[in-house]
C-alpha cells in the first residue's frame, strides 16, 4: 500500500527547497498539489468558506516565507504543511470561542471526492488511496474513541476541555485518545 505522498517524497522536498530559493513555479506546484486537502481540512474545521479561504492564504504565506527554514528530519513536507493549516484553524476557532456542535464530534461518512481538475494525476491517485485507508481505519475505532479524537483533532481541544464538555473523567479521555492514535498508527504507517 502506498502512502500519499510517499514519506520523505523527494518531489515534495525538492519543491520546498526550490521555494526556499524563491522559485515561483515550485510554489505553484506545491499549492496545486495540496490545495484540495488543505482547504478541505480548513473548511471542515472552520465551517465557513470565506474564513477557510483566508486561512488558506495565511498557510501558504507562511509556506512561502518559511520554506527556507524547513527541516526534513523534523517532519515530511505533508506533515509540516497540514500542521500549519490545522494550527491556524485552531487559532481562529479559539478567537471565536466556539462551542462543540454535533458536526465537531463526527467524522465524515463519505470523504471520498472525485479527483479534482489537477494535472498532478499521480498524486491524486495516491491521495485517494490514502483517504480510503484513513476512512477505513477511523471507521474501525470504537465510537467513544472516534468522538474524543474528532474533538481533539478538529476543534483543537485539550484533554481537560474534552473531559469537561463530555462530562467524562480526564483519565478516560486520555486513554481513549492514546488508544485511538496507536491503532491508527498501526494501520496507517507505511509498510517497511
Amino acid at each position: 500500500m502506498v502512502a500519499f505522498p510517499l514519506p520523505g517524497s523527494e518531489a515534495d522536498e525538492a519543491l520546498l527547497m526550490r521555494i526556499g530559493a524563491g522559485d515561483e513555479q515550485a510554489f505553484t506546484r506545491l499549492f496545486d498539489r495540496y490545495r484540495g486537502v488543505v482547504f478541505g481540512l480548513l473548511l471542515r474545521m472552520l465551517a465557513n468558506r470565506e474564513t477557510a479561504e483566508e486561512a488558506l492564504m495565511d498557510v501558504f504565506t507562511r509556506v512561502w516565507k518559511q520554506a527556507a527554514d524547513y527541516q526534513l528530519q523534523r517532519a515530511s513536507v505533508k506533515t509540516w504543511l497540514l500542521s500549519i493549516a490545522r494550527h491556524r484553524a485552531i487559532d481562529l476557532l479559539r478567537m471565536r470561542h466556539s462551542h462543540p456542535d454535533q458536526n465537531s464530534r463526527q467524522w465524515a461518512e463519505d470523504a471520498l471526492e472525485t479527483i479534482s481538475a489537477n494535472n498532478d494525476v499521480e498524486n491524486e491517485v495516491l491521495e485517494l488511496d490514502m483517504r480510503l485507508k484513513v476512512q477505513k481505519a477511523i471507521a474501525k475505532l470504537p465510537q467513544e474513541q472516534r468522538e474524543v479524537l474528532a474533538l481533539a483533532y478538529f476543534r483543537g481541544w485539550s484533554h481537560s476541555e474534552i473531559a469537561k464538555a463530555l462530562n467524562q473523567p480526564l483519565g478516560t479521555v486520555k486513554t481513549r485518545i492514546r488508544l485511538a492514535m496507536s491503532q491508527l498508527r498501526e494501520k496507517l504507517e507505511p509498510e517497511r
Binding site: R44, T79, L188, E189
Partner: peptide, 18 residues
C-alpha cells in the same frame, strides 16, 4: 510517527477546491 498519523487525519475531511 504520531505527527504523521495526525497529518493523515486531514484526509478524513473531504477535499475541497478554493
Amino acid at each position: 510517527a504520531f505527527e504523521a498519523v495526525a497529518a493523515n487525519l486531514a484526509l478524513a475531511a473531504p477535499s475541497a477546491e478554493p
